[in-house]
């Protein structure tokens, strides 16, 4: 049994997504291990972002099951029991099982605690960095209701509550090195800072699973290294598992524990970075060689492929 199969946080089973006649994702299954950094890679148009959008509730999958095992492991029969019920989630002895495909998008974040970032950064550009991070704590701040009289009157108990939120924001600003920019509009930040701010904002929702859509896209090597550092900190210091889509192989190979390769909407490989980099089908897919030639290529590629990762 692979490590990610023993205690997964997310089970993706037979996920398919069709847009009209186009099959973007075709019967994809994989496991995301709890506490792991899992990378989804593949050529453009392989269906990576579609898988992400299904997991984070923006698309309703055409078929398949997305089970998030929050707080602790659950047995297959426990997950099946929730699936058989009409409910979108159910408690298990160790935690709770959420069926993401049944949750409305905002519940995927507020209840199942799956946070995400976007390929084309989506910050609240007209709001300050600090405000961005406070908006992210909406759930924590509105447990007493959306229009809370205590907050409306600005009573001391509310101010204490707000202080906690600002402190959490500050914690993530320090982690991302953005404290000095806290009062600047998010839209004024340079690109690399915006990427990190988006991650900080997602972390402010206190997620159990963080989904990053190409976090290193457009970053220079220094920023890319800082990103790796940040992700490793999130992984070690917080109870957050990471699922990421990435084209930058240096990021993928350096920080992931588990790599899933998609091509034309189907999974073609699934394993450790080492296994995947030596998988002939992956090599063929990345080098654009047809199936017959795979065996030939495989013989030649005991060389390090990460050098050609920029493909």
């Amino acid at each position: 049994m692979r490590p990610w199969d023993s205690d997964p946080i997310l089970l993706v089973d037979h996920l398919s997504m069709r847009f009209g006649g186009l099959v973007a994702v075709n019967d994809v299954s994989f496991r995301v291990g709890r506490g792991d950094v899992t990378a989804v890679i593949g050529p453009n148009g392989a269906g990576k972002t579609t898988v992400f959008n299904c997991i984070t509730g923006f698309y309703k999958p055409s078929a398949g099951r997305l089970a998030l095992l929050k707080d602790g492991p659950a047995s297959a029969s426990e997950v099946d029991a929730v699936t058989a019920s009409d409910a979108a989630w159910g408690r298990t002895p160790a935690g709770a099982v959420y069926l993401l495909e049944r949750l409305p998008d905002h519940k995927v974040s507020s209840a199942a605690r799956v946070a995400r970032t976007f390929q084309n950064i989506r910050l609240f550009t007209g709001m300050t960095v600090l405000e961005n991070l406070l908006v992210a704590q909406h759930r924590a701040l509105t447990v007493a209701g959306l229009v809370n009289p205590v907050a409306l009157l600005n009573l001391p108990s509310w101010r204490a509550h707000e202080k906690t939120a600002v402190d959490r924001a500050l914690y993530w600003l320090e982690k991302t090195g953005l404290v000095a920019r806290a009062d600047d509009p998010a839209g004024d930040l340079p690109y690399g800072d915006q990427r990190r701010l988006e991650i900080a904002r997602a972390m402010c929702t206190e997620p159990v699973l963080l989904c990053l859509d190409e976090p290193a896209a457009g970053l220079n090597p220094r920023e890319s290294a800082a990103l790796n550092h940040l992700l490793m900190e999130i992984r070690t210091g917080h109870a957050t598992s990471i699922l990421l889509i990435e084209h930058d192989m240096s990021v993928v190979m350096e920080i992931s524990d588990h790599v899933i390769v998609l091509e034309y909407g189907s999974k073609i490989a699934d394993g450790t970075p080492e296994e995947v980099r030596n998988d002939p089908r992956v090599i063929a897919s990345y080098l654009g060689v047809d199936e017959e030639a795979v065996a030939d290529v495989a013989a030649d590629v005991n060389v390090d492929l990460s050098a050609e990762a920029d493909l």
Binding site: T56, G57, F58, D105, H106, K107, V108, S109, S110, A111, A115, R116, F118, R122, L123, F124, T125, G126, M127, V135, A136, H138, R139, R201, A202, T205
Partner: peptide, 12 residues
């Protein structure tokens, strides 16, 4: 500012 980002942050 951005409705989609709001939904991703758990805002109804």
């Amino acid at each position: 500012e951005d409705e989609i980002a709001c939904r991703s942050l758990g805002i109804n």
